[in-house]
């Protein structure tokens, strides 16, 4: 494992910790898209079916369990926790995420590395992850004002994607048979979605101002 991959995993983990911290500390999930969070649950469950069949390392197994557990915990809080669910901005979270699930699954049936149950679900999870942030980004755009923790959550998620691209570039040059065009292309698409957000994030950081997205 190279340093970029590790940095990517850690920023992914930090983003989840930031989100859990926001929900627990403020007892509020305002500004957070439940739809994006539900998509992440589907992404992790579909991708980590190999928990039962392949063992790669203790690190991999533990991280997979952490990602599944934390994403379930977030969705549980937003749906079930009495105080938290009252703060959910339902009227701002109207993205039709079923289309993303359906589209990703159809794409996985057409484009996959092998026509097996696990590989179809793996490809599905890769495609779905690429678009899972869209309901959250649309919600940020609609509310305009982004609170600090929500902004940092999206920032760390974007950083995770950027580090994974550096990781692939590194692997491409250091490993003789490194080719995984499904993950790399989807990863590029996914990272591109963050470009706009990053632009405004850095402007607000440079001006030491509150993050605001244009309507």
């Amino acid at each position: 494992m190279n340093i970029f991959r590790f940095a990517g995993d850690m920023t992914h983990l930090i983003s989840i910790v930031v989100l859990l911290l926001k929900i627990y500390a403020t007892k509020s999930c305002s500004g957070i898209s439940l739809k994006t969070q539900e998509l992440y649950v589907i992404v992790f469950l579909a991708r980590y079916l190999d928990l039962f069949t392949d063992f790669i390392s203790v690190y991999n197994t533990v991280m997979k369990l952490v990602f599944i557990g934390s994403s379930l915990a977030i969705v549980w809080c937003m749906r079930m926790h009495r105080a938290v669910k009252r703060t959910y901005d339902k009227e701002l979270d109207t993205f039709r995420h079923y289309f993303l699930v359906l589209g990703s699954f159809v794409l996985a049936l057409l484009l996959h590395e092998k026509f097996t149950f696990q590989e179809i679900f793996w490809a599905f999870s890769i495609y779905l992850e690429a678009v899972a942030i869209l309901p959250q980004l649309v919600m940020l755009q609609r509310s305009g004002n982004v609170d600090n923790l929500t902004g940092q959550y999206v920032f760390f998620l974007g950083a995770y994607r950027a580090f994974y691209i550096l990781n692939w570039i590194y692997r491409f040059f250091t490993e003789p048979h490194f080719s995984r065009w499904i993950a790399c292309l989807s990863g590029l698409v996914q990272t591109a979605f963050y470009a706009d957000f990053f632009y405004y994030y850095f402007i607000s950081w440079k001006n030491n101002a509150k993050l605001q997205l244009p309507a």
Binding site: R5, T53, D54, F55, I56, M63, K64, E113, W122
Partner: peptide, 10 residues
């Protein structure tokens, strides 16, 4: 494992 093919990334 999986026909010699494993996804080693998360």
């Amino acid at each position: 494992p999986n026909g010699g093919h494993m996804h080693d990334e998360l």
